[in-house]
Design a protein around this nucleic acid. Structure first.
Lengths: 337, 337
DNA sequence: CTGTTAGCGCCTTCAA
DNA sequence: TTGAAGGCGCTAACAG
């Protein structure tokens, strides 16, 4: 019930100045050994704990990182946040969470609030429909550094960590080619997404490497809804050429496509093989786990993004030394395939 | 680059006292209309934003709730946190995150740090191996209220929200009995868990209701590892009586048991039906989705726990008016079953 | 080595 | 209706 002990309280009891106590507590070099001891002993006795809010205020620093991301229920993000949290904690930072639920307006509000809470820095993965970046630009004025990860804006002069879908896609398509597949369908995402374009490029390059012709009609787009994916799969199935393999935008898309194909009487992994991008956990429990899967290393991405942010905060990195890290995605072949 | 504008700054420019500006900004009643306007206009112009850290310090309140939970990658918790965040945000609270990764020591540290960050209150779901609650007891001294959810401690005088597994279990077993099953196995969790005991009780009661005898040898325990579950399933299969249905502790356990059974040549959902507790997303993509599943309403639990905490903080609820909310779990039958 | 002073930005008395 | 003063807890600059 009595108010928590303060530095002043300790000072009074010991007939010292508050500043002396402060110094003693911080093991300041030029403080007498015995005063230091006295102070620390009394502090322990009173269970003194510095009032962080006072320190935050005074130091203009809150040791808090804001995290803005679309959805924690997506496995990718819940893995990423562990990378973030673990890294932040190591440097004594805490983590303030805000989910945009893929809503640009909400994202904007969260950023605003976090700015007001005076977070030291921000880690952001964009909402699906974010097209204006003013709320991020504004943070420069407040000297709040931002590092984007995974879903990054189409802007110059930013820090980011993202995975390059190209490398994984090349590997995936090459893997299929090597298995003898020649007509490979791709269910891609919305055309404007960078990640979709990377997949397309990867697909082309893999074909080129084998001096095969790239057939644009085999690269179809889904809006990532179940229905959109089913239509995309339908489109592939009605192609003049008979596909024997599909590279799907992600595991959800893959599963929807698989379901549709199965309904059409197609033998999964026999008539048509599926390869996908890993974002579902427990694929070992799935009815038709993909043959192989492109891993995006979410934990690592979270970790790297946080390291950059911390370096920015500690001054180890200049604000305009823009870090743009690309984590190569990599094909992981399902065990036994 | 110029420091963010302060109340003082505005005051100086307008030849007013800081206190007047403060009042004008807050629409204090007895402030002249035109001064109010002037102040607000200039504030807008300078893009004045109150310095929250100063306010936190001065008001001894941070509008921040700490959340301590085991693992966001568990679907239950990522759903729960959305309930928490949404509810908190509605009352202008932010959310500070800490994952214990099911490590009691880490949990303790997180609580300590959150206390120092002066969170206004705490929402906690315990680590698996937490047995001492001293770090929570201590919070009373600091007047930081705690509401536990889902994984709650075995203590008197706490606030909590948890689901009662009993009701759902009764429904699950009754459902199976109704379908004609007479020898029903249960793969339960560690015996000391409250949730395990509730399942046992539910099982018993459902049998009693039909004047059937409860057979303890059909209620086996898994330590929740894959291996433990396989052993448990093995134990059930070697029971003298031939089981035709299994109630599994959760979806993970269910899937492991299913895998093991399938390996033994058992026809899933034909020789043996499985019923489980919902914590896996996308069960529609699973090879053998459970026939029915006990829903635990994680979003709702998060929401209710947060409402209690907010009421505690607003004084609407007395600290010692211990809220102990039980959210009844409910059997959800898979579509078409 | 230690004390004094001052100030971070805001709000809340108490006075005028 | 407004101003002046004081203080939240801590640190840092400047004195001794």
């Amino acid at each position: 019930m009595p108010n928590p002990p303060t530095i002043k309280e300790i000072a009074k009891r010991l007939n010292l100045a508050a500043s002396t106590v402060s110094r003693a507590l911080h093991n300041h070099p030029r403080i007498g050994l015995k005063t230091r001891m006295q102070v620390q002993a009394l502090a322990r006795e009173l269970q003194y704990e510095p009032n962080q809010t006072a320190i935050f205020f005074q130091q203009k620093k809150t040791f808090t990182l804001g995290i803005v991301l679309p959805e924690l229920s997506e496995a990718f993000f819940s893995a990423a946040i562990s990378g973030i949290e673990d890294t932040a904690n190591k440097s004594n930072y805490m983590v303030l969470l805000g989910q945009s639920h893929d809503d640009a307006t909400r994202e904007q509000k969260i950023v605003e609030i976090m700015k007001n809470h005076r977070v030291d820095g921000l880690l952001v993965s964009l909402a699906k429909n974010t097209v204006h970046y003013a709320h991020f630009e504004m943070l420069r004025k407040y000297n709040i550094p931002v590092v984007f990860f995974d879903r990054i804006p189409d802007m110059k002069d930013i820090h980011y960590v993202a995975s390059n879908m190209e490398s994984g896609t090349i590997q995936a398509v090459s893997f299929l080619l090597q298995q003898g597949h020649r007509v490979i369908g791709m269910i891609n995402g919305p055309e404007k997404l960078i990640a979709s374009r990377q997949r397309t490029t990867g697909y082309r390059k893999a074909m080129q490497q084998q001096r095969l012709k790239y057939d644009a009609t085999l690269n179809v787009h889904s809006d990532l809804t179940k229905e959109g994916t089913r239509q995309a799969m339908q489109q592939l199935l009605s192609n003049k050429r008979k596909i024997t393999a599909v590279v799907a935008f992600n595991d959800y898309v893959s599963q929807d496509a698989v379901q549709y194909a199965a309904e059409q009487g197609i033998q999964i992994n026999k008539d048509i093989c599926f390869v996908s991008y890993a974002n579902l956990p427990l694929s070992s429990y799935m009815a038709y786990p993909p043959l192989a899967s492109v891993e995006q290393y979410p934990y690592l991405q979270g970790q790297k993004a946080t390291e950059i942010l911390l370096d920015l905060l500690s001054g180890k990195l200049a604000p305009d030394a823009y870090q743009q890290i690309v984590v190569d995605s990599r094909l992981v072949i399902a065990p036994g395939k």
